[in-house]
Amino acid sequence: MRAYLTCAWAIVLRETLRFVNQRGRFIAALVRPLVWLVVFAAGFRAALGLSITPPYETYITYEVYIVPGLCGMVQLFNGMQSSLSLVYDREMGSMRLLLTSPMPRWWLLFSKLLAGTVISILQVYAFLVLAGMLVGVVMPVEGYLLALPVLMVTGLMLGALGLALSSLIKQLENFAGVMNFVIFPMFFLSSALYPLWKMAESSELLRDICALNPFTHAVELIRFALYGSLNPTALGWVVLALALFAGLALWGYDPARGMVRRRA
């Protein structure tokens, strides 16, 4: 047991140290949602009227609405980035090193996921602080606290998605492909930018697609948590998606198949 924890802790520590060293990645991770918040939201504020829906208790501005979605976006990007970089380009060697550890492979992959999630949570809190300081979107204190366990679950889910994709799909070799075929569709077809009832006004089908998107549920889970309440339905969906993606990732990293077949 102790050896397992030693191993997991070392993996989390390594990823965190590496992340702290890559200042460019940290800044990019913060600038991206801030640009959305400041530029995009400013333009949309006038165009979009939002009624009062839970967890909000009063009328809210558009900036307030999209902050949880942007938290989700931070985790989505991070999940894809850390999982894909793991297999492609220079990380290939260190992944091989990792997989020669005598620890069970599921534990190694879980530790890796956990590390990516910890980094994404650091990014989300940094973003929330800046959102509060620059745009004045401040959550209740219990919201900031409840968000922590919730971000853990959503981060693991999105990281597992990246891990599953990285092991199963050869074509997603560059980040542009992932942006076009994973990140953008997941982000736009979700409740991150518009509430689902607003989607339904234009197309019921679109709303249904959004409702199936696990990212929608991650965003809703974060949204409710940031206002101090738990959304059990969203939690259920996120946990289900996590189980599914983790299963796929394990299958993809099974040494009898998967990543194996595509040596340089």
């Binding site: 102790r2 050896a3 397992y4 030693t6 191993c7 802790w9 070392a10 993996i11 520590l13 390594r14 140290l17 090193l97 990792l98 550890s101 005598p102 620890m103």
Partner: peptide
């Protein structure tokens, strides 16, 4: 750090 990381992958304590 590099060496510590590797040792931990093999479950060797600090």
């Amino acid at each position: 750090r590099n060496l510590l990381y590797f040792a931990a992958l093999h479950g060797i304590g600090r």
